[in-house]
């Protein structure tokens, strides 16, 4: 019996841990349409396949895409060590980083032509509201509770401005409270404000540009938030540095070849990726503080 123990002990000691260090990469995304997980597969499947092809040479095996229905599931998966890399917006990334303590933002993602953006607040052109303070006791249309630029960022800015912001369906809110609706899309936010169903709306500057001209002309911007990095790639803190290095190299060069460019465009309209600058990290630190403060 003791002979078997002598044989097995070295094997147990030398057995590699179940982590990225085993040469495996698991990319994770949060579905924007929880009801349609296939959409996430359609969007990011090609990117995953691309990585698999490119990393095969570096001895890195890319596993199936991990699609989480929401942030909570993603946090759970990260904590379970099932995700090695993550593509998400700044606020969800900060939230997952804070909640799990197992991911670290690493690369900046250009998306929809933007490196960074800011959120703006708008009202109907004929509205008497001129500033954030005028929103007390009013209603505002947000996109969805996962939205960075059309929910979290404006929410933090409003709270930073001292407003009480509550869900519209809250029972017995104070008269000064600003009640918010989730209307499902930036476009709907514009229509809601235009239609008078909400007094104000907030989304990023890109959304503003994409708002139908006929509607936009009827609206007016009353406030803007500080800038925010467009999107981020974060790696698991458990991931082996050489794998992170290999994956980063592939991602950073993707936009330089047509196949990579097309793959990026198909995955959430990404233009390219680059390293985070010091300013970027400072910006992230700002938002991390705001998030901590007002979440």
């Amino acid at each position: 019996m003791w002979v078997w123990s002598l044989i097995l002990l070295p094997c147990i000691l030398l057995w590699p841990p179940d982590s990225g260090a085993d040469g495996r990469l698991r990319l994770g995304v949060v579905s924007e349409r929880p009801d349609r997980p296939s959409e996430a597969l359609e969007q990011y499947g090609p990117l995953n396949a691309y990585l698999e092809r490119r990393l095969g040479d570096a001895g890195v095996r890319v596993a199936d895409l991990v699609v989480a229905r929401d942030l909570a599931e993603m946090a759970q998966r990260i904590e379970a060590g099932e995700v090695d890399a993550l593509i998400e917006g700044v606020i969800p990334t900060l939230k997952l980083e804070r909640d799990t303590q197992r991911i670290r933002p690493s690369l900046l993602v250009w998306r929809k032509g933007q490196r960074q953006y800011h959120s703006l607040f708008f009202v109907r052109r004929d509205s008497p509201i001129t500033g954030l303070q005028d929103l007390a006791g009013k209603t505002i249309a947000f996109e969805s509770k996962r939205s960075t630029s059309a929910y979290f960022v404006p929410l933090f800015r409003l709270r930073d401005a001292g407003l009480e912001v509550v869900p519209a369906e809250s029972e017995a809110p104070s008269p000064e409270a600003l009640r918010y609706h989730f209307v499902g899309s930036e476009l709907n936010q514009a229509y809601w404000v235009h239609d008078g169903r909400a007094d104000a709306g907030a989304f990023n500057d890109g959304d503003w540009e994409r708002t139908p001209a006929a509607i936009r002309e009827e609206l007016r911007v009353i406030a803007r938030t500080p800038p925010l990095l467009r999107w981020l790639v974060s790696f698991s803190t458990d991931l082996a540095p050489e794998i992170e290095q290999a994956v980063s190299e592939v991602l950073l060069e993707m936009h330089l070849n047509p196949e990579g460019l097309a793959t990026l465009a198909a995955a959430a309209r990404i233009v390219k990726l680059e390293h985070l600058t010091d300013d970027d990290r400072a910006n992230l630190a700002y938002w991390a503080r705001v998030f901590e403060e007002f979440n």
């Binding site: 209307v183 899309s185 476009l187 709907n188």
Partner: peptide, 9 residues
């Protein structure tokens, strides 16, 4: 009813 123009589209 919800003025969900995106959904309508």
């Amino acid at each position: 009813y919800r003025l969900d123009v995106s959904a309508l589209n």
